[in-house]
Structures are given as structure tokens and as C-alpha cells.
């Protein structure tokens, strides 16, 4: 059993478990699954700066910050304690394309060190991938009113057409970056 837990989990185990988080949060506290809101609560708690959108009782939403703290701890348990492969078994086509198109050579770890190593902040790559990328995630999710959890999982589960628009837009953005902007950058 433990050996099975230590292996990477297939989609048909992980997906349904992620889906069950939606009713679990509703049943234990009437909360809707959503993670990007935590970024707003942290801004409201730390640097409200008199901005109306950041002036609200964030303490009433503190459950969300506990949940996010849990996700961080879960990352530690899932990766460091339960173990992980050195290299993620992605498809051979993706490896081939990333080598040919982006010049990547080191496929170990959760993300490419050649793009995300902190030393990269000394050149354009670090600023694009670490700073611009993170900024767009924080800006876009709040502007859209949710992220993959709030719109794709929670919103679509509740048959919200607004969430369908959002998820299509997430993919439009992701496909534009992968197929149009990446080839311009590399």
C-alpha cells in the first residue's frame, strides 16, 4: 500500500479525489473551493494601502489561508516524505519538442532549472518566467474572478456558464503562450 502511495498517482485516482474536495469543503463549512482568493486576502492583510478592493474583513475568510497553508504542507509531505521520481515521465513528444524548440537539456525536477533557477533573475529568462509569469497569474486570476480551482473545478461542477467562459479563456491564453509567444522567445 505504502509503495503504491509513493508512486506518481494516475489521473483516475487524483482527479476524483480533487473533485471530492468540492463537497468536502461544502459539508464541513459551507465553503466554495477556490485558491486564488488567498492572494487577495494576503494583500488585504499586509498592504491594503487604502485600496477599496483590499479594504474588507479578510479575517472572515481566514479559513482560505489555513487551507492554503495546508496545501503547502501537503506539497512537503507529497514530495519529500512520500518520495518522487527524479524526472517526471512526460511524453516523448514533449521532451523532443522542448529540446528542439526551447533548447532545454535538463529534464529533472518539477520544473526546468534552465528557466526557473533563481540565478536566472540576472537575465531576461528569469524575469519573464518568474516575475512576469507570476504577475500574470496573480493579476489574471483576480480579474477573472477565479483560477483553475474556483472556475474550472468548483464553478463547472456547479454548472456555471461564467466559469466555462473563464476556462476557455484560460486555454486561449495558455495556447497563445505555448504556440505563439514561446516560438518568438526562443
Amino acid at each position: 500500500m505504502l509503495e503504491l502511495l509513493r508512486q506518481p498517482w494516475p489521473w483516475y485516482i487524483a482527479g476524483p479525489l480533487i473533485g471530492l474536495t468540492v463537497p468536502a469543503l461544502l459539508l464541513i463549512g459551507n465553503k466554495a473551493l477556490g485558491i486564488s482568493s488567498s492572494l487577495r486576502h494576503v494583500c488585504a492583510a499586509c498592504v491594503p494601502a487604502g485600496i477599496p478592493f483590499l479594504t474588507y474583513n479578510w479575517r472572515a475568510e481566514i479559513w482560505n489561508l489555513w487551507f492554503v497553508l495546508g496545501i503547502g504542507l501537503g506539497g512537503y509531505v507529497g514530495y519529500q516524505l512520500l518520495g518522487h521520481p527524479d524526472t517526471i515521465a512526460i511524453s516523448a513528444e514533449t521532451v523532443r519538442d522542448l529540446k528542439a524548440q526551447m533548447g532545454l537539456t535538463d529534464f529533472s525536477g518539477l520544473l526546468p532549472k534552465e528557466l526557473f533557477a533563481l540565478e536566472n533573475l540576472a537575465n531576461w529568462k528569469g524575469w519573464v518566467f518568474l516575475v512576469l509569469g507570476g504577475f500574470l497569474v496573480g493579476f489574471g486570476t483576480r480579474y477573472a474572478g477565479g483560477c483553475t480551482s474556483g472556475h474550472a473545478i468548483s464553478g463547472l461542477s456547479n454548472l456555471q456558464w461564467v466559469s466555462l467562459v473563464a476556462v476557455i479563456a484560460f486555454f486561449v491564453g495558455g495556447l497563445l503562450m505555448t504556440w505563439v509567444f514561446y516560438p518568438m522567445l526562443f
Binding site: 507570476g134 497569474v137 480551482s149 476557455i168 479563456a169 497563445l176
Partner: peptide, 18 residues
């Protein structure tokens, strides 16, 4: 608009907030 902006960031960082 925000959804597309997030999508661009999702493909760059390879990560959504969770």
C-alpha cells in the same frame, strides 16, 4: 480578459495558484 491573462501566466509558470 482576466482569464486570458491568467492563461498566459499559467503556460509560463506551469502553475496555477494552488
Amino acid at each position: 480578459i482576466g482569464g486570458t491573462i491568467f492563461g498566459l501566466g499559467w503556460a509560463l509558470t506551469g502553475a496555477c495558484p494552488g
